[in-house]
């Protein structure tokens, strides 16, 4: 586990240079950017690193999949991941860290397929130094760990399951710690000095656009993927495509993501009282609908009356995208740009 940390530090070094240079940025970031970094991004990634470190510690003590303490520790860290999962730029994208934490959706069943192969081969890669870094992302992170903790198929071979659980949790801890450290030590400085030599942003507008895109992508993912996948079509609902249904987290994840996106949206709307009020109201409606569903794994998509409630929630989120997102974009003066969900 030492090696990946070293690599990350080496990469982080040139990025941290601007901190020591005089502040010659042409563009001063507006308060919304500073607030977003200080109140939303940094605490989010710091919490994730903390709960992930605890998860790895718990796994060292008790690595059996059915252990309540282990499942709870996994759940707490997964919660913290969902809360930052829309922030897909900078440190999460280096070395494919976000992919290594969260490979989902998995439309071809690659996660169980890859895990099965690791078990069948008793592949020693998982305990070799630097080994997890080269394992397929489908067999890493929170979603792979869910199979180990909740699918009995992966609990029969207790010895290998234990070793793999420890390897996965240590990998998650190392990855989240690297993200948090890069944000604190270098990327914060870069995002707050657009136009400076090492900043990937040419202007304040590009920084605002980055944050705006994160909000847009988060809403799109929750609507299209977290809700859209299990909904399928009326004739052909797909309950087993719900996110993390094995652990009963599908509805929970939707609520967490909406709460996190609400916080970011309110920060971006700051300074325009009417907009803040509209955004708040729109998100509160969505969160209230999501909470009222009482359908933890969206099994209700097959029952017309329960399905309707999930569809209404999806429409509420799409209305936020259509109206509030557009208003926030206009206020910030930025366009939606391109994101990773473009394409098929």
């Amino acid at each position: 586990m030492l090696k990946p940390l070293l690599t990350a530090t080496l990469i982080a070094l040139p990025l941290s240079l601007p901190l020591t240079l005089p502040a010659t940025a042409q563009d001063l970031p507006p308060p919304v950017v500073e607030t977003a970094v200080r109140d939303h991004i940094l605490p989010g990634f710091s919490a994730l690193a903390g709960s992930s470190a605890r998860l790895a510690q718990v796994a060292e003590t008790d690595c059996t999949g059915q252990a309540e303490t282990l499942r709870n520790a996994w759940g707490a860290a997964f919660d913290d991941w969902i809360r930052v999962s829309h922030l897909r730029f900078g440190p999460t994208e280096m070395e494919n860290r976000a992919f290594a934490l969260a490979y989902w959706p998995d439309s071809r069943g690659t996660t169980p397929k890859t895990l099965t192969k690791l078990f069948a081969d008793h592949d020693p890669i998982i305990t070799s130094p630097d080994g997890m870094g080269s394992v397929s992302v489908a067999a890493r992170g929170f979603y792979a760990l869910e199979f180990l903790l909740y699918d009995p198929k992966f609990q029969t071979d207790a010895g290998y399951a234990c070793a793999l659980t420890r390897a996965l949790t240590a990998d998650i801890a190392a990855t989240t710690s690297a993200i948090s450290r890069d944000w604190t030590e270098s990327y914060t400085a870069l995002i707050l000095t657009p136009g400076s030599e090492y900043s990937p942003y040419h202007s304040t507008d590009e920084v605002k656009q980055e944050l705006f895109k994160a909000l847009a992508m988060g809403l799109q993912f929750t609507s299209d993927t977290r809700l859209g996948r299990p909904l399928g079509t009326f004739e052909r609902p797909r309950p087993t495509r719900a996110e993390a249904w094995r652990s009963g987290r599908s509805q929970h994840n939707v609520i967490l993501s909406l709460q996190a996106l609400r916080q970011l949206a309110l920060i971006l709307a700051e300074g325009d009282a009417n907009l803040v009020s509209d955004v708040e109201q729109a998100f509160d409606t969505a969160i209230q609908q999501a909470t009222a569903l009482d359908d933890p794994i969206f099994a209700g998509v097959e029952d017309p009356s329960k399905r309707l409630k999930v569809e209404i929630l999806q429409q509420t989120i799409d209305l936020i995208r259509e109206q509030q997102l557009a208003n926030i974009g206009n206020k910030l003066g930025v366009a939606a740009g391109f994101n990773a969900l473009d394409g098929d």
Binding site: N96, F99, T114, S136, V137, F338, A340, G343
Partner: peptide
């Protein structure tokens, strides 16, 4: 140009295969 570059080609078709070693 942008959607093919980023989400589709760089993401779905190229990086994903590498990340999955599949």
């Amino acid at each position: 140009m942008g959607s093919l570059s980023y989400g589709e080609l760089a993401g779905e078709r190229m990086r994903l295969g590498l990340l999955l070693n599949d």
